[in-house]
Simulated assay, not measured.
Amino acid sequence: MGSRVSFVTIGALLLAACQHAATGNATHSRTIEDIAFAQASCGGCHAVETPGISPNPASPTFAEIAHRHGTTQRTLAAFLRDAHNYPEAMDFDLTPQQADALASYMMTLGGASQRP
């Protein structure tokens, strides 16, 4: 059963990567693929959905990040593309498409696009 879950998760991640590469992120909504990708990539430390509490108390939730003053999809995507900015615990790389898709998803949780 464990390997079955792994294959499902990997399939969801691949589907998400293909979908985002094909559709871009001009208009973005939360999808099962977005949530699966965020959970697999970041969910060990961050709460990736709202409401949520981050598993690592030192890690802000995605909603908290999206609500930070000055955070936009563009600034967030730039941060995510530039892996040397990551704290040591975030030692992984995202493709530019993955960074863009993740930033777009995060902003649906209450970022600048939802501010009055």
Results as ranks from 00 to 15, higher is better:
residue 1 M to A: 14
residue 3 S to H: 03
residue 3 S to V: 02
residue 5 V to W: 05
residue 9 T to R: 15
residue 10 I to K: 08
residue 11 G to I: 14
residue 12 A to N: 13
residue 12 A to W: 05
residue 12 A to G: 12
residue 13 L to S: 10
residue 13 L to G: 11
residue 13 L to T: 10
residue 13 L to N: 13
residue 14 L to V: 15
residue 15 L to S: 15
residue 16 A to T: 09
residue 16 A to M: 11
residue 18 C to K: 13
residue 18 C to L: 13
residue 19 Q to V: 15
residue 19 Q to T: 15
residue 21 A to D: 08
residue 22 A to Q: 10
residue 23 T to P: 01
residue 23 T to N: 09
residue 27 T to L: 05
residue 29 S to G: 14
residue 29 S to Y: 04
residue 30 R to T: 04
residue 33 E to W: 04
residue 34 D to H: 07
residue 35 I to S: 06
residue 37 F to C: 08
residue 38 A to P: 12
residue 40 A to L: 14
residue 41 S to P: 06
residue 41 S to K: 15
residue 42 C to P: 15
residue 43 G to H: 09
residue 44 G to D: 13
residue 45 C to A: 12
residue 46 H to E: 07
residue 47 A to N: 06
residue 47 A to P: 07
residue 47 A to L: 05
residue 48 V to F: 00
residue 50 T to P: 04
residue 51 P to G: 08
residue 52 G to S: 10
residue 53 I to K: 15
residue 54 S to V: 09
residue 54 S to P: 06
residue 55 P to Q: 14
residue 56 N to S: 14
residue 57 P to Y: 08
residue 57 P to A: 15
residue 57 P to H: 10
residue 58 A to E: 13
residue 61 T to K: 02
residue 66 A to Q: 04
residue 66 A to E: 03
residue 66 A to K: 00
residue 66 A to T: 04
residue 67 H to F: 01
residue 68 R to E: 07
residue 69 H to L: 03
residue 70 G to D: 04
residue 71 T to C: 02
residue 73 Q to L: 07
residue 73 Q to F: 01
residue 73 Q to P: 02
residue 74 R to V: 07
residue 74 R to W: 02
residue 77 A to C: 11
residue 77 A to E: 13
residue 77 A to V: 14
residue 78 A to V: 03
residue 80 L to N: 08
residue 80 L to R: 07
residue 82 D to R: 06
residue 83 A to S: 11
residue 83 A to G: 00
residue 84 H to E: 15
residue 84 H to N: 12
residue 87 P to K: 01
residue 88 E to N: 03
residue 89 A to D: 12
residue 90 M to C: 10
residue 91 D to Y: 08
residue 91 D to R: 13
residue 93 D to Q: 13
residue 95 T to F: 04
residue 96 P to F: 04
residue 96 P to G: 11
residue 96 P to H: 13
residue 98 Q to A: 09
residue 99 A to H: 03
residue 99 A to L: 05
residue 101 A to Q: 06
residue 101 A to E: 05
residue 101 A to F: 01
residue 102 L to F: 00
residue 103 A to W: 00
residue 104 S to V: 00
residue 105 Y to T: 02
residue 106 M to K: 05
residue 106 M to P: 02
residue 107 M to C: 04
residue 108 T to W: 01
residue 108 T to N: 08
residue 108 T to G: 04
residue 109 L to P: 06
residue 112 A to G: 05
residue 113 S to D: 15
residue 113 S to A: 15
residue 113 S to R: 13
residue 114 Q to F: 12
residue 115 R to A: 15
